[in-house]
Deep mutational scan, measured.
Amino acid sequence: GIPATNLSRVAGLEKQLAIELKVKQGAENMIQTYSNGSTKDRKLLLTAQQMLQDSKTKIDIIRMQLRRALQ
């Protein structure tokens, strides 16, 4: 079985993952909103794209940590 310490770690990672998935969803929504907007929305679009990139990276890292914890 999986050690108890790993189980609480997994629960924490799953919570983090859920949050990051919401951030990713929000960033994707912002990108959709701003991509057909005016030029003043360009900065917001770039910010949203950066957020999305960061979020995807975090999600990958969390998933990797989850896999390790579940081994």
Rank of each mutant, 00 (worst) to 15 (best):
S8D: 12
T33M: 14
V23Y: 10
A48G: 02
G37K: 06
G1V: 12
S35I: 13
I62P: 00
G26V: 15
N29Q: 13
K15M: 10
A11E: 14
L66S: 00
L46S: 05
A4N: 13
K58A: 04
I31M: 04
K40G: 10
L45E: 02
N29K: 14
A11V: 08
I19E: 12
R63V: 07
K56A: 06
A27Y: 12
V10D: 01
I2T: 10
G1D: 10
A4L: 02
T47I: 14
L46V: 09
I2P: 09
N36P: 04
S35K: 09
I19M: 11
R68Q: 12
I61H: 11
K40H: 11
T47G: 07
L46G: 03
S38F: 07
R42G: 09
T5Y: 06
E20R: 01
L7F: 02
K40L: 08
G37L: 04
K22E: 08
T33S: 12
K56D: 05
Q16H: 03
R42K: 12
T47H: 13
L66W: 01
V10H: 03
Y34Q: 04
G26I: 15
K58R: 14
M64S: 10
D54G: 03
T39G: 09
S35P: 03
Q53C: 11
S35W: 09
I19W: 09
L66M: 04
I62K: 00
L13A: 00
T5D: 12
I2V: 12
Q49L: 14
I2S: 10
Q65I: 04
T47E: 14
M51H: 03
E28R: 04
A11D: 08
M30S: 03
L46F: 06
K58S: 03
N6G: 09
N36D: 09
Q53W: 05
P3E: 11
K24W: 06
Q65F: 05
K43V: 11
I59W: 00
Q50K: 11
L44H: 05
P3Q: 06
L70K: 13
S55L: 03
D60H: 14
L44I: 04
G37E: 09
Q65K: 08
D54K: 09
K58L: 04
T33N: 13
L66A: 01
Y34P: 02
T5V: 09
K43H: 12
N29A: 12
L44Q: 08
Q32Y: 10
G37Y: 01
N29T: 10
G26K: 15
T57F: 07
G1K: 14
M30A: 08
L66D: 01
N6I: 08
I61Y: 11
L7A: 13
T33D: 15
Q71N: 09
Q65A: 10
R68P: 02
E14N: 08
D54V: 09
L66H: 01
I2F: 11
G12W: 15
N36E: 14
S38A: 11
L46A: 11
T57N: 10
I59K: 00
I31P: 00
S38P: 06
S8C: 15
S55H: 01
E14D: 02
M51A: 08
S55W: 01
Q32M: 09
Q71Y: 06
K58D: 01
A69Q: 04
T5A: 11
G26T: 15
L13I: 02
T5Q: 09
Y34D: 02
R67I: 12
N36T: 10
